[in-house]
Computed example of a mutant assay.
Amino acid sequence: MSFSFGFSGDDIDHDVDESQTQQTPAITTQAQPPASYSAFPVAGKPQLPATLHSLSDFLSQLPSKLAYDLLDIDVADDGASETRLRLPRRELWDVRVQLMAEDDEVVNGEDRVDDGGLGKHDVKTGIYEGGFKSWESSIDLVKVLAAQDELTAAQQASSLRVVELGCGTALPSLAMFTWIMQRQSRSQWHQKPCSFILADYNPSVLRLVTLPNFVLAWALHNTHNPVLQDAFNIEGELELSPEIIQAFEQFLSSSGIHLSFISGAWSPEFISCLYDLPAFSSDLSAPITLMVGAETIYSPFALQAFTQTVFTILERERGSGATAAAYVAAKRLYFGVGGSLDDFIEAARSKGATVAELREECEGVRRGVVHCILQQS
């Protein structure tokens, strides 16, 4: 008998009040055929190795169309310059349609881990599919990023590096990507190298949800582009073509924006993959590195691995003279599975970090967002 997370309920819906809570993770037992790797990190089981993925490879695997919905986030109450933000998210059913159309490799009668447990089937009881969904804490984190206005500070830096750990649908990174496009439109963004490093345990999440959401965000902001003239003929769908993919790549290149993808477990190999990226190997002085993570500390095992990864990066950045900070959003307590935001705060302070608690949600399941830095020695 093996254990797996059973996250119930749908992902956040745009017509549901943002304060509405989801059911909390619970441990369920279910007989499962043995597999080489689990669909999410589990203590004592083999972990997926850290792997770099190329943007061009993921782009080549996009389907001919993407179905999406829009999530409206009100950031006016948080002192942000922008009062409302609309972010696209690929529909979960559309992910399943793509997987059913692909020739899936089956191992021991189960869908390969690269499919994140979705495969050719509908939702399967006891299978973790959190990486494909958006969680409340990611919205909390977007609101904090809006209020902190990190992009204004980044204008004084030589480059900006955003590392989202456990990115899933990548709402925080999508928000920053969208704000950059908005500032470009108003001539309020002085072009500089800007890298988004999207990391998730499952490579399937990166190729099926994370990258498609970036393509959708770009397309919805650039509907005036002639190449997109007929791309939105059906409401809630973006028709893709080689010309549209090429225009997306050209936009990234001309804007100095780089997208990188890393899958696999948080580990020394993950750190090596990160620092092998051009964004971290350049000799630009005074860069800013922002780490963001939402709903990543749902168990003691995940908490330990996440904390170690965050502080390894913070320490390396401090040693190189970069300005670095981490924004972490999570529930105050993950009932039944351990892990909590308070445990992370305690661990961070024990490592010498300055931790500021920036936001707390008290309705329903309590959640919070904290900001962590290591002071220069």
Rank of each mutant, 00 (worst) to 15 (best):
T223H: 04
A324K: 08
T354E: 12
I244H: 06
Q250H: 12
Y334K: 12
A294N: 07
S263A: 07
A329E: 04
V355L: 06
E361Q: 15
Y327V: 12
G352K: 03
R318H: 03
L238A: 10
F261E: 11
E317P: 02
A347H: 01
L228D: 03
E361A: 14
L240D: 07
C362R: 15
V369H: 05
E363L: 10
Q229H: 11
E239A: 15
G338E: 14
I297M: 13
E243G: 05
A329M: 07
A329Q: 06
T307V: 13
A348T: 10
E363W: 06
H224N: 12
E346K: 15
I297D: 06
L238E: 05
L341R: 00
T354K: 12
A322R: 12
L333N: 13
Q246D: 15
V355F: 03
V355H: 05
L341P: 01
E249V: 14
G339F: 07
G293M: 06
G256N: 00
G352L: 06
S320H: 14
F280T: 02
E315A: 15
T309C: 11
L274A: 08
L252N: 10
E360V: 08
P278F: 07
Q250Y: 02
A286H: 13
C362P: 00
E360G: 01
F344Y: 11
A325L: 09
F248G: 05
G364N: 03
F270P: 09
G339A: 10
L259F: 07
G352Q: 04
L341C: 03
F301E: 11
V310C: 07
S350Q: 10
R318V: 03
D342Q: 13
F280W: 09
E235D: 15
P242Y: 07
L358M: 11
S253R: 13
T354G: 02
A279G: 04
F301I: 12
A302D: 09
S285H: 02
F232W: 01
T309A: 12
R367P: 04
F311K: 08
T323S: 11
G256K: 01
L259C: 09
P242R: 03
E249S: 15
S320T: 09
Q246F: 07
I271A: 11
G364H: 03
E237L: 12
E357Q: 14
E363A: 08
L358I: 06
L341I: 08
D342I: 09
A353K: 00
A356M: 09
A286G: 02
Q246L: 14
I313M: 10
A279C: 14
Q304N: 11
C273I: 01
A247S: 14
F335L: 13
L303G: 00
A279K: 02
Q229Y: 01
G364P: 06
R349I: 04
D230V: 00
G256H: 04
F344D: 02
E346H: 12
